[in-house]
Amino acid sequence: GKMTGIVKWFNADKGFGFITPDDGSKDVFVHFSAIQNDGYKSLDEGQKVSFTIESGAKGPAAGNVTSL
């Protein structure tokens, strides 16, 4: 299901970062391709987001990332 969290950091040049889930679980990798907006796909440190957990090739990653 949907989770919420805070963006820990995001490197716009490399197109990835990490989200710290509100439930205290392990930080989740986020790739820019998972960001659900029409414009420039980037996130800001400290931004609140909702997301799902998808299993990627390198382990769990955030999917369906939407800013709240």
Rank of each mutant, 00 (worst) to 15 (best):
V28G: 01
P60F: 09
K14R: 15
F51Y: 11
G15L: 02
K14N: 05
A57Y: 10
L68V: 13
Q36K: 15
F18Q: 07
N37H: 13
W9D: 06
F10R: 02
I53K: 13
K58V: 07
K14Y: 07
Q47W: 04
K14G: 07
S33V: 03
F51V: 01
E45Q: 15
Q47D: 15
D22W: 03
T66G: 05
W9H: 05
I35H: 02
G24M: 07
A12F: 06
D44R: 14
V49E: 01
K48F: 10
K2V: 11
L68H: 10
N64I: 03
G1F: 08
P60D: 07
V28F: 04
P21H: 00
G39E: 10
F32H: 10
I35G: 03
D13G: 15
N11Y: 04
G39H: 10
G5W: 00
S55Y: 14
V7H: 00
G63K: 14
D38K: 14
D23N: 13
S42N: 13
G15D: 02
D38S: 13
K41S: 09
A34S: 13
G63A: 14
E54F: 14
T20K: 15
G39D: 10
D23T: 11
N11R: 15
F29P: 09
G24R: 08
S67N: 06
S25L: 06
F10E: 02
T52A: 08
E45H: 14
N37S: 15
D22N: 08
G63Q: 15
I6E: 10
A34L: 02
G46L: 04
T66L: 10
S33L: 04
G46T: 03
Q36D: 11
S50D: 09
G5R: 00
V7D: 01
K26R: 14
A62H: 01
S33Q: 06
D27E: 11
I35V: 11
D44H: 15
G17F: 00
W9E: 08
S55H: 15
I6P: 00
K2H: 04
W9V: 07
F10A: 02
G5T: 01
A12E: 12
T52C: 09
G1Q: 04
K26M: 09
G15H: 04
A34V: 08
V65E: 02
S55E: 12
D23Q: 09
D22F: 05
A61G: 06
S55C: 10
W9T: 09
G15F: 01
S33N: 08
F51E: 01
S50F: 06
S42C: 14
P21K: 01
G17Y: 03
G5F: 00
I35A: 04
K2A: 09
D22I: 06
G39P: 09
G56Q: 10
E45Y: 10
G15W: 01
I35S: 03
P60G: 05
S42D: 08
M3L: 11
H31P: 05
V30A: 03
V30D: 02
G59F: 05
L43Q: 00
S55N: 14
G17Q: 01
G56T: 14
M3K: 15
L43F: 05
E54S: 12
G1S: 14
M3E: 10
D44Y: 11
G15T: 02
G1M: 09
G56F: 06
G24W: 04
M3D: 05
F16Y: 15
I19Y: 00
M3H: 08
G24P: 03
G15S: 03
E54K: 15
G39F: 07
Q36N: 09
F10Y: 09
K41F: 06
G46A: 04
F16A: 04
K41R: 14
F29I: 06
K41M: 08
G59W: 05
V7A: 02
N37R: 14
F51D: 02
S25V: 06
G59I: 04
P21V: 03
I6S: 12
V65F: 00
N11M: 05
K48W: 09
Y40S: 13
V65T: 02
S50G: 08
K26T: 13
K26Y: 06
H31N: 06
G15A: 03
E54N: 14
S67C: 11
K58I: 07
V28H: 03
D13A: 15
D38W: 09
G59T: 05
F32L: 09
T20W: 04
F16S: 05
Y40A: 13
N11P: 00
V28N: 02
V7Y: 00
V49S: 01
T52L: 07
I35C: 06
A61E: 15
P60E: 07
G24T: 05
G5P: 00
E45S: 15
K8P: 01
D13L: 14
V30N: 02
T52S: 11
K14A: 09
T52D: 13
G24A: 08
E45R: 15
T4P: 02
K48Y: 12
V49N: 00
V28D: 02
N64L: 05
Q47Y: 03
F18A: 08
D38T: 13
F32E: 12
F10D: 03
G15N: 03
F10V: 04
F32M: 11
G5A: 01
K58H: 08
Q36P: 05
G63C: 14
E54G: 09
A12M: 11
G5V: 00
F16K: 05
I19A: 01
V7W: 02
I6M: 10
K48Q: 13
S42K: 14
N64T: 03
F16E: 10
G17E: 00
F18K: 07
T4L: 10
V28E: 02
I19R: 00
F10L: 03
G15Q: 06
A57F: 12
A62I: 03
D38I: 08
F32I: 12
F32C: 10
Q47S: 11
G46M: 04
A62Y: 02
S67M: 14
G56A: 10
L68A: 10
L43H: 01
S55A: 15
S50Q: 12
F18R: 05
H31E: 09
A62R: 02
T20Q: 14
I53A: 07
S33I: 02
T4A: 04
A61L: 12
K48I: 06
F32Q: 12
D22M: 06
I53S: 06
Q36L: 12
A12I: 07
Q36T: 14
G5I: 00
A34T: 08
N11K: 10
A57T: 10
G17S: 01
T4N: 09
D22P: 02
K2W: 07
K26P: 12
E54Q: 13
A57W: 11
W9C: 13
S55W: 14
G63W: 11
N37C: 15
S67I: 12
I53R: 11
D23E: 11
G15I: 02
P60C: 07
K58R: 12
I53P: 07
D38L: 11
T4S: 10
A62C: 06
G17P: 00
G56H: 10
A61Q: 15
T66N: 09
A61C: 13
G46E: 03
A34H: 06
Q36C: 11
A61N: 08
I53Q: 07
F29K: 08
G63R: 15
F32G: 10
K8V: 02
V65C: 05
K48D: 04
S42V: 12
D38M: 09
L43T: 01
A62K: 02
Y40P: 12
V28C: 07
